[in-house]
Simulated scan of single mutants.
Amino acid sequence: MATAPRSGLAGLLKSWVAGLGPAAPAGIPLTRETAQRLVQSFIHSEGAPISPGLNAQGFGGLAAGGAQLYFEWHEETQALECSALVYRFREPPKPGVIAGFQAEEQEGTDTGGGTVDYEPENRGLYLTRTYAQVPEERTFAKEMRRLMKTSRKWNTEVLDRVASRVFHPEELEKR
């Protein structure tokens, strides 16, 4: 029995069977429609039921495996912003906290391919990637899973480290 080559044909067929069709060829400028298809395909690949991907306002999201991933389409820049939640502050963060997370990023702590992003309007700290060109669907899914996994690690390990640095630097100096 012959088997199909591992060229992504199975993923392509899976998305067609799901009624989504491929987003678009990789490397071309992203459009709202292709962004929507990417998000739909990824959400479906995570076991969620068929989703519109992005709503009429250009927002979408997924909670899976203890991580929360948000999508936002930016019409003015024709870009898809993908943000994995690290932590949501109850109150605005104390001075130095966001700078502490940015220092972790600058020091080379793995960000899952994203960048540290604090959103004051919802007091959320995220690891964010932005796409302006269509990535391959398999690559996009792999990058989103990595971003989600890394956000969970930042929530447990990096959050404690930053809090120690900002609120108890004298303890770090003793070591």
Results as ranks from 00 to 15, higher is better:
residue 1 M to P: 14
residue 2 A to I: 14
residue 3 T to R: 06
residue 3 T to L: 07
residue 4 A to I: 10
residue 4 A to V: 11
residue 8 G to F: 02
residue 11 G to S: 11
residue 11 G to H: 07
residue 12 L to M: 08
residue 12 L to I: 07
residue 16 W to G: 06
residue 17 V to R: 14
residue 17 V to K: 14
residue 18 A to C: 12
residue 21 G to I: 03
residue 21 G to M: 05
residue 21 G to R: 01
residue 28 I to D: 06
residue 30 L to P: 00
residue 31 T to G: 03
residue 31 T to R: 00
residue 36 Q to F: 05
residue 37 R to N: 09
residue 38 L to E: 00
residue 39 V to F: 02
residue 40 Q to R: 15
residue 40 Q to Y: 10
residue 41 S to F: 04
residue 41 S to A: 10
residue 43 I to V: 15
residue 43 I to Q: 11
residue 43 I to A: 12
residue 44 H to V: 09
residue 44 H to F: 10
residue 46 E to V: 11
residue 47 G to P: 02
residue 47 G to L: 00
residue 48 A to D: 11
residue 50 I to Y: 10
residue 52 P to G: 09
residue 56 A to D: 07
residue 57 Q to R: 12
residue 61 G to A: 02
residue 63 A to P: 00
residue 64 A to H: 11
residue 65 G to L: 06
residue 65 G to M: 05
residue 68 Q to R: 15
residue 71 F to S: 06
residue 72 E to G: 13
residue 72 E to M: 14
residue 73 W to T: 00
residue 75 E to I: 10
residue 76 E to D: 12
residue 78 Q to C: 09
residue 78 Q to G: 08
residue 81 E to A: 15
residue 81 E to Q: 13
residue 81 E to H: 13
residue 82 C to K: 06
residue 87 Y to C: 12
residue 88 R to L: 12
residue 88 R to A: 13
residue 89 F to G: 03
residue 90 R to H: 09
residue 90 R to A: 13
residue 91 E to N: 15
residue 92 P to L: 12
residue 95 P to A: 13
residue 96 G to S: 04
residue 96 G to H: 01
residue 96 G to Q: 01
residue 97 V to Q: 04
residue 98 I to R: 03
residue 98 I to A: 01
residue 99 A to T: 13
residue 100 G to R: 03
residue 100 G to I: 02
residue 101 F to R: 04
residue 101 F to K: 02
residue 102 Q to G: 04
residue 104 E to G: 12
residue 106 Q to H: 10
residue 107 E to T: 12
residue 109 T to Q: 13
residue 110 D to Q: 03
residue 110 D to A: 07
residue 110 D to R: 05
residue 111 T to I: 04
residue 113 G to K: 02
residue 113 G to T: 00
residue 115 T to L: 08
residue 115 T to K: 08
residue 115 T to W: 04
residue 115 T to F: 09
residue 117 D to W: 11
residue 120 P to K: 01
residue 122 N to C: 15
residue 122 N to G: 13
residue 124 G to H: 05
residue 125 L to S: 00
residue 126 Y to L: 12
residue 127 L to Q: 07
residue 129 R to T: 04
residue 130 T to Q: 02
residue 130 T to K: 04
residue 131 Y to S: 03
residue 135 P to E: 01
residue 135 P to I: 05
residue 137 E to D: 00
residue 138 R to N: 08
residue 140 F to G: 04
residue 140 F to Y: 01
residue 142 K to M: 13
residue 143 E to S: 05
residue 144 M to A: 02
residue 145 R to L: 10
residue 146 R to Q: 09
residue 147 L to Y: 00
residue 147 L to C: 06
residue 149 K to F: 14
residue 149 K to Y: 14
residue 149 K to S: 15
residue 150 T to K: 07
residue 153 K to Y: 13
residue 159 L to H: 07
residue 160 D to W: 14
residue 164 S to Q: 14
residue 164 S to V: 11
residue 164 S to D: 11
residue 165 R to H: 03
residue 166 V to I: 06
residue 167 F to Y: 15
residue 167 F to N: 15
residue 167 F to M: 15
residue 168 H to M: 10
residue 168 H to G: 06
residue 170 E to K: 06
residue 171 E to A: 15
residue 172 L to P: 10
residue 175 R to C: 07
